[in-house]
Amino acid sequence: MSPGSVGTVETQYLDLPGSLSLDSGRRLEQVRVAYETYGTLSPARDNVILVCHALSGDAHAAGISRVTPAESTRDGFAAAAGPKGIGWWDGMIGPGKAFDTDRYFVVSTNLLGGCRGTTGPSSTDPGTGRPYGSTFPVITVGDMVACQRAFLDALGIERLAAVAGGSLGGMQALEWAVRYPDQVDDIVVIASTHALQPQGVAWNAIAREAIMRDPDWQGGDYYGTGRRPDAGMGVARMVGHVTYLSAPSLAGRFGRRLQSGGDLRYTLSEPEYQVESYLRHQASSFVKRFDANTYLHLSRALTYFELDLPAAAAAIRARTLLIAFSSDWLYPPAASEEIALAWKNHGKPVDLQVIDAPYGHDCFLLEEARQTPVVRQFLAEGRS
């Protein structure tokens, strides 16, 4: 049987029953979590896979959303992602796919700090009745995972068959296995790292500066003013998008081709090369669906993330699958190799697969067909 779709889905919302304690020492009250589920929960509740999204993702990971971006917005940002509301990991989640919904109950949540239904800077502070804005606390990957743990507790799910994700999602999978070693069977860590390399830290800093230097950012309190830092946010997206690609993929897709196909006009403001027009399109699309303050908080969280590998290796009990891509310079294979070596030195089960592919960091979203058999075999071995 060929892989199928999970069909039409609708994002749901759950309010955590208590407050959430953060690594900074602060607490958040009345935290709401946006989520979607795919497949059927087993009577023993032992077939749950949590999939974790990257910086710009959301809870809508698979299927077709009942609500399209044109039909509904929250805080001015589109409520669904992708063309025609297709989930961001639709190629990996569904009947017969890597995360097989004929066998597993797959759960996807929007991260703490998000702008797509989970409590974040654009949400209303119950203490003031106004958007949090600049008062929203700094959050960590650990806080995101603690929020997911509290959310699953509210659903009555104690243990996870697996936690999986790419990029920032992979960091969450690692954090889950270290923070809750007795509650996770397997982790699938794709195009991720135990600590962002200095070059990645630098590019993220530039992207955040672009937002914070936009006068319309207003120190983070732009909600309700009629002005948003779209210019800075657009530049941040352009910077970030370039880091997700490889030099060969850019050259192959655009080369030095002109947008018009004609001669250079020697202007300063208008895009002339196809790659310039492409980046401006990416920026324009992104600012319509994402909040600048959320970008700042999630970018800072993934920059802060750093595992003490020997200590993490000693703590972890989950079987680990690491998938890296040869052309990914932002989350290079060398980082996954360091994790694998640390795990092996402590006798922990780990499988590292490096896939030769040209698309840079975006491979984890583009090379689904090559990842699928690797993930399926790994999960099957764990349940045999």
Score class of each variant (00 low, 15 high):
Leu321Val: 04
Gln183Met: 13
Ser65Leu: 06
Leu322Thr: 02
Gly133Leu: 07
Leu41Thr: 01
Ser246Pro: 03
Arg300Pro: 01
Asn110Leu: 10
Val178Ser: 06
Thr109Gln: 09
Gly220Pro: 05
Asp102Met: 14
Gly82Ile: 03
Val178Ala: 09
Ala62Asp: 14
Ala191Asn: 05
Ala312Pro: 00
Asp216Leu: 08
Ala315Arg: 03
Pro310Cys: 05
Pro69Asp: 12
Ala251Gly: 06
Cys52Trp: 11
Gln30Glu: 03
Asn204Ser: 10
Asp328Arg: 10
Met92Tyr: 12
Pro126Asp: 01
Glu175Lys: 07
Gln148Ser: 10
Ile190Phe: 06
Leu50Cys: 07
Ser269Val: 11
Gly360Met: 08
Ala210Glu: 06
Arg265His: 08
Arg370Thr: 03
Arg300Leu: 08
Phe151His: 01
Val138Ser: 15
Val9Pro: 00
Gln371Ala: 03
Tyr331Val: 02
Asp328Thr: 13
Leu112Met: 06
Gln172His: 10
Ala292Pro: 01
Val184Asn: 03
Gly94Cys: 11
Ala177Trp: 02
Ala357Cys: 14
Val141Thr: 14
Phe364Val: 04
Arg289Thr: 13
Leu307Asp: 00
Gly169Lys: 00
Gly262Tyr: 15
Met144Lys: 00
Tyr244Pro: 02
Asp362Thr: 04
Gly166Asn: 08
Arg103Gln: 12
Tyr266Val: 05
Glu10Val: 02
Thr267Asp: 14
Ser384Asp: 07
Ala342Glu: 00
Ser134Asp: 04
Gly226Lys: 15
Phe325Val: 03
Asp153Trp: 04
Ser108Met: 11
Ser42Tyr: 07
Cys363Arg: 01
Arg179Glu: 13
Gly165Met: 00
Gly166Trp: 15
Ser246Gly: 15
Tyr223Gly: 00
Gln183Thr: 06
Thr243Tyr: 01
Arg256Thr: 05
Glu367Asp: 15
Pro43Tyr: 11
Ser277Asp: 06
Ala311Glu: 13
Leu14Ser: 04
Glu381Ser: 10
Asp308Ser: 14
Met92Pro: 03
Val275Cys: 09
Val235Trp: 02
Val350Met: 04
Glu209Asp: 14
Cys115Thr: 01
Ile187Gly: 12
Ser24Arg: 01
Ser167Cys: 11
Lys288Asn: 09
Pro17Val: 01
Tyr304Trp: 05
Gly63Trp: 01
Met238Trp: 00
Tyr273Asp: 14
Asp100Cys: 09
Ser260Gln: 13
Gln197Pro: 14
Ser56His: 07
Arg66Pro: 07
Thr225Phe: 14
Trp329Cys: 11
Ala311Gln: 09
Cys363Pro: 02
Arg228Trp: 10
Val375Ser: 15
Trp217Val: 13
Ser2Val: 11
Ser277Arg: 12
Arg149Lys: 07
